[in-house]
């Protein structure tokens, strides 16, 4: 029988959501439409329409060493062109954000090529060639992994993922890069990810309601959703791994 990856253990809807997001064959639902130009403005690495600055000549103009690995691996578009390495960084609120750093890094590693994810407790950074980054960032921001109120794009001063929400349901942001328009109910980006004010506001769409967030969250949280201990299958799995590791170290034989 062919091996079929299971991606994640657990019997709750949180585990289900994790499995869905991690599975590269599962197409992420598109819930908003942020344009290429707006993604470039949000990240603030270059002006929209500006040519991609490069860190080395295109690979076609370089003499490549005779390396078997280079022959095996097809370079991404950004690598071919010699683009700079640039980043986007996400902050996910613990109050039922649709995704979170650990799962983000895993799912991106399954789905994208030529990128380097950095996983921290409150933020997750992706580093890759600039034109690849723009493509990946657009997909991530437009997908179900992103909520206008509970997910932030924050290059610096990311603090806020574990704090209480604001009265209007927005995640705390020391730099207030995003504001909720009280009249329209639409979240507007007023600064880019490094807190520089934008010339024109970028519409991020309406924040999802609590019901949707609860149903789509991948975060175990006993106060606002499902606690880890409520997922018996997951607890059993973690205990099994822990037990095997303690008893047999790196030679797991029962």
């Amino acid at each position: 029988m062919a091996y079929k990856p299971q991606y994640f253990p657990g019997s709750t809807h949180i585990a289900d959501n994790r499995r869905k997001q991690l599975d590269p064959n599962h197409k992420l639902e598109k819930i908003r439409d942020i344009s290429d130009k707006d993604i470039v403005l949000l990240m603030g690495h270059r002006a929209p329409g500006q040519a991609y600055p490069s860190s080395h000549p295109p690979l076609s103009e370089q003499q490549e060493p005779n390396c078997p690995i280079r022959k095996l691996v097809t370079p991404t578009d950004g690598a071919k062109a010699g683009d700079r390495i640039r980043y986007i960084q996400f902050t996910d609120s613990m109050y039922n954000a649709p995704c979170h750093p650990y799962i983000r890094s895993y799912l991106e590693s399954y789905r994208y090529r030529g990128m380097d994810p950095g996983t921290l407790s409150g933020r997750q950074i992706i580093e890759c060639r600039e034109r690849d980054l723009e493509k990946y960032a657009k997909e991530l921001v437009n997908s179900e992994l992103f909520d206008a109120a509970r997910t932030g794009i924050r290059g610096s001063t990311v603090h806020g993922h574990s704090l209480r929400l604001d009265e209007d349901g927005m995640m705390f942001d020391m730099m207030q890069r995003r504001v909720l328009d009280k009249k329209t109910g639409i979240v507007m980006n007023v600064k880019n990810q490094i807190s520089e004010p934008l010339d024109a506001q970028i519409k991020m769409g309406k924040p999802m309601d609590d019901k949707w967030l609860k149903a789509h969250s991948t975060i175990y949280h006993s106060l606002v959703g499902v606690g880890t201990r409520d997922d018996q299958e997951l607890v059993d799995y973690i205990q099994r791994i822990h037990s095997l590791r303690v008893k047999y170290g790196y030679l797991p034989q029962e």
């Binding site: 290059g155 604001d166 020391m174 207030q176 490094i194 807190s195 520089e196």
Partner: peptide, 22 residues
């Protein structure tokens, strides 16, 4: 509560005024 600095404390925009409704 969490602090709201008057200027951006770090990153490339360090030193720029921090416009914050709160």
């Amino acid at each position: 509560g969490p602090r709201l600095p008057a200027v951006v404390p770090s990153g490339p925009a360090k030193g720029q005024p921090n416009i914050h409704e709160m």
